[in-house]
């Protein structure tokens, strides 16, 4: 399983990188940590003419926390996320989810930007971005633009990005300190892709009713999903047993996962409800700060 032939450049600026992608005319690929894309090449499922390595481009590896939220550079690695103690308060859902990403060695090289661009519906980061209404900054031959996570994911391993566009950062909007949240996923083994997963948060009003409910689902569709019907069940309601059961049923009903060698479609559909139910219980029981 040797890699196919390709050219390699590691430019020192975004402009140069974009120019190389333009010159590649669709067959050149940017590469960040390479932890998903190198295996794709090893199986010869992709044979790019050139890899444009982003490693030498300055400024892509920072985590900034501002009033607007958490801005994460595309080259920030999983371990940087897990090592950044500030995130536990600034965006607790993120490290909780990233703790499920692959394994120790992969987390030393895999990046946030790479995962978003890879757009695997079974991966954690795309669903977190979608759930949190994240906005990505992207540069390409037509200049810089912002892309909502909701507009990014088009299908399995497919995004709306042009072939000469590079993700530079992602902004996860600010997180109120008393927000309730949970992350639940179930995989066959530690670090495996999830059979299903749930990322959620909601805010509570003075009466204790939930609003601004955001529920994202992993691995039950061609893209990361928001579970609008389950959200609708919960918005404006107190998260009690009845609400949880109703939301779980709605979640199972609104997803249409496919079966594969690891789990049947029927199982995945049910698992979404089970995980949502557990996530909601966890969120409701978690002591507010």
């Amino acid at each position: 399983m040797k890699l196919p032939h390709f050219e390699y450049e590691a430019p020192a600026s975004l402009d140069e990188a974009v120019a190389l992608l333009v010159a590649g005319d669709g067959s050149a690929r940017p590469i960040a940590g390479g932890q998903s894309f190198v295996p794709v090449m090893a199986f010869r499922l992709a044979e790019p003419s050139m890899l444009v390595d982003l490693r030498n481009i300055p400024g892509l590896d920072k985590i900034e926390i501002t009033d607007a939220g958490v801005r994460i550079g595309a080259m920030v690695r999983w371990r940087d996320v897990l090592d950044d103690a500030r995130l536990v308060e600034a965006l607790p859902l993120l490290p909780a989810a990233i703790d499920h990403v692959a394994h120790y060695q992969i987390r030393n090289r895999g990046t946030v930007g790479g995962s978003l661009a890879h757009a695997d519906p079974a991966a954690e980061m795309p669903t977190i971005a979608l759930t949190c209404d994240a906005v990505l900054e992207v540069v390409g031959s037509k200049g810089q633009r912002s892309v909502k996570a909701a507009d990014l994911f088009m299908g399995p391993l497919m995004t709306s990005l042009e072939s000469d566009e590079i993700i530079t950062s992602v902004l996860l909007p600010a997180w109120p300190a008393d927000r309730r949240w949970a992350f639940q996923e179930f995989a066959r083994r530690r670090g495996d892709f999830a059979l299903a997963g749930i990322a959620l948060f909601y805010d509570e009003d003075a009466s204790g009713a939930a609003h601004n409910v955001h529920i994202g689902a992993i691995s039950v569709g061609d893209t990361p999903l928001r579970l609008a019907k389950a959200e609708a069940v919960l918005n404006g309601r107190k998260i009690d047993e009845a609400a949880i059961a109703e939301a779980a049923a709605a979640a199972s009903a609104e997803v249409d996962p496919s079966g594969d060698i690891h789990a049947s479609a029927r199982y995945r559909k049910s698992l979404v409800g089970t995980l949502l139910s557990r996530a909601l219980q966890g969120a409701a029981n978690r002591k507010a700060k």
């Binding site: 199986f43 066959r188 083994r189 530690r190 495996d192 892709f193 060698i261 690891h262």
Partner: peptide
């Protein structure tokens, strides 16, 4: 054969 990688042929891990 639908199992072509060690991500699909699931042998036990240290955590299991």
């Amino acid at each position: 054969l639908l199992v072509g990688s060690l991500a699909d042929y699931l042998i036990p891990l240290a955590t299991d």
